[in-house]
């Protein structure tokens, strides 16, 4: 029988995927706010703003869900990550705080060009730092260099060496490019203005190529940086079909953007991102924080996991219609037309 912790692991992975597809795209919005250039810069910024405003706070909650599930279901892993990755996580938090606050402050502060642009810059820079730091933390977790004892939760770390390396930084940039790609693809559907749509199409193409480049760099660096992930992605029975499908989806994604099939792109590109995260998840399983912590040896007892699963199930029944309504109200036009 499958242990309850496996369900929790799957739910956390799904939450991470949903966070990237929604909250990640919001960070990507910040990237394109920074690179809003040319005669239509202000319109680009306005569209990004209107796209994010009603939904970013709800999207952000996925991150909290992931954190809560981690400490409830895998407490030793949470303690280990919090200890060894204190520095990148703290920087990520500062980014989260500045991104969110700069975004609302911009709306309610003086609307003069100067003040508006100052908050925009802060919002954009924080939107770039945050996913990079998140990616660095995930890369460090994947690299298999954080030594912790699953029994005592004692972590053997110098607080720096597990993340201050090429592989985690590559994953940081990889994450950033994914956010930027998602945002650009979504933004093509947030406007009727063909010129603006073309601006975002160009950005989507650049980002999609960047994602491809960062994927290759990350894969090459994983040979030394995360050998277990490399082996999982390269030598599993599912490796070859997985790479073929991901490759085909990536090509379909670029083609759909190139040929202005934005509706199609908005379906295909998120599938591509989902496959990337799933691939990492499968390659890493059953390790949670390699080399010592697995999902099963850090799992809380079933008496804890069972009620949490029930809450998630009931919560899903409540949240799915709520989210559906939120997106229908604010994204309905671009979703249905």
């Amino acid at each position: 029988m499958i242990g309850l912790e496996v369900y929790l692991a799957v739910i956390m992975l799904i939450s991470l995927i949903l966070y990237m597809l929604t909250g990640g795209a919001d960070f990507g919005g910040g990237v394109w706010d920074l690179f809003a250039i040319g005669p239509r810069a202000k319109t680009q910024r306005d569209i990004i703003h209107h796209a994010l405003a009603p939904i970013w706070e709800a999207n952000h909650v996925w991150l909290i869900v992931i954190v809560v599930l981690l400490f409830v279901a895998f407490p030793v892993a949470f303690a280990t990550i919090g200890t060894a990755l204190h520095i990148p996580l703290t920087l990520m938090l500062i980014g989260i705080v500045l991104r969110g606050t700069a975004f609302v402050f911009r709306t309610y502060d003086d609307q003069s060009e100067r003040v508006h642009l100052r908050w925009s810059r802060l919002f954009a820079i924080a939107s770039i730092i945050t996913p990079i730091m998140l990616g660095i933390a995930l890369g460090a977790i994947a690299s298999g260099t954080i030594n912790a004892d699953p029994e005592t939760a004692i972590v053997d770390t110098d607080f720096v060496s597990s993340w201050l390396k090429p592989f985690p930084f590559a994953i940081g940039l990889f994450t950033l490019t994914i956010c930027a790609m998602l945002a650009a693809v979504y933004l093509t559907l947030e406007t009727d203005d063909v010129a603006i749509q073309e601006d975002f199409r160009l950005r989507a193409l650049i980002a999609t190529i960047s994602v491809g480049v960062m994927a290759c760099i990350s894969f090459l660096l994983s040979t030394n940086g995360a050998p277990a992930i490399r082996a999982g992605l390269g030598n599993s029975y599912w490796s070859i079909p997985f790479h073929i499908v991901t490759g085909l989806i990536a090509i379909l994604g670029i083609w759909s953007i190139w040929s202005r099939q934005f509706k199609l792109a908005r379906i295909v590109i998120p599938i591509q991102v989902t496959l990337i995260i799933l691939g990492w998840g499968f390659a890493q399983y059953p390790n949670l924080v390699a080399p010592n912590l697995t999902f099963s040896n850090t799992a809380a007892p079933d008496s804890v996991l069972k009620p949490v699963l029930i809450i998630i199930l009931c919560g899903g029944i409540l949240l799915i219609p709520a989210f559906w309504y939120l997106y229908k109200v604010f994204k309905g036009r671009s979703l249905t037309e």
């Binding site: 706070e57 709800a58 952000h60 909650v61 709520a322 309504y325």
Partner: peptide, 8 residues
């Protein structure tokens, strides 16, 4: 989640 969705 409920709070954030409906606040939007």
């Amino acid at each position: 989640f409920i709070e954030a969705i409906f606040l939007g």
